[in-house]
Simulated assay, not measured.
Amino acid sequence: MQTGLNKRTNDLTITNALAGIAVDNLADALDFYERLFGRPADARPMGEVAEWKLPGGGWVHIATDADRAGASLVTLIVDDLSEELGRLSLQGLMPVAKSMGDFFKTAKFRDPDGNQIIFSQPQHGTY
């Protein structure tokens, strides 16, 4: 039996994803991520966990894990990177790097623990 696979076509049957980010101090992380997402967490399923639901599906999950804090990377796909950068700037969040490639424009942010949060906009006709 092929667990997690559609038996007929062998296509994955995954319908959603939860991106996990390990942080050292949840209070510091909450301040950053509430500004990043423009709102408080959508769910607080446990005392050391906060989660934001993404409009297109999926969740970003922040959890206290001192051993792994600072080693996470999440890429968030946006329709208009310039618009997002303007919104984030008003929240006091500035990218540590920006780049433009053949397929994506990106802006990299770091949370208080050093985790990388990348905003990425597909170039016209590539996504």
Rank of each mutant, 00 (worst) to 15 (best):
R39G: 14
N25I: 14
S82H: 02
I117M: 08
A29H: 00
Y33S: 07
Y127P: 01
A50W: 02
L26P: 01
S82G: 08
I62T: 10
A19N: 05
E48D: 06
R68G: 05
L90W: 05
L12H: 14
L81Q: 01
K98N: 15
Q123Y: 10
D113P: 14
R44I: 14
E48L: 02
L85E: 06
K108T: 09
I14C: 15
G101N: 03
N25S: 10
A107G: 07
K7G: 10
G20D: 11
P122H: 08
D111P: 13
S120L: 03
G114N: 09
D65N: 14
D102R: 07
G92Y: 03
P55E: 02
R68H: 07
A107L: 09
L30A: 11
N16R: 13
G92R: 03
N115Y: 02
A97W: 12
D67S: 08
G125H: 03
K98L: 15
M46H: 04
R110T: 05
Q2N: 13
T9V: 14
N10E: 04
G58V: 07
A17I: 15
P45L: 03
L81V: 13
F104S: 12
F109R: 01
L85P: 00
Y127I: 14
D28N: 02
D31L: 06
T106F: 06
H124S: 05
D113M: 09
N16F: 04
T126I: 15
G101W: 00
V78A: 02
F109M: 05
L93T: 01
I118W: 10
F37V: 15
F119K: 04
F119R: 01
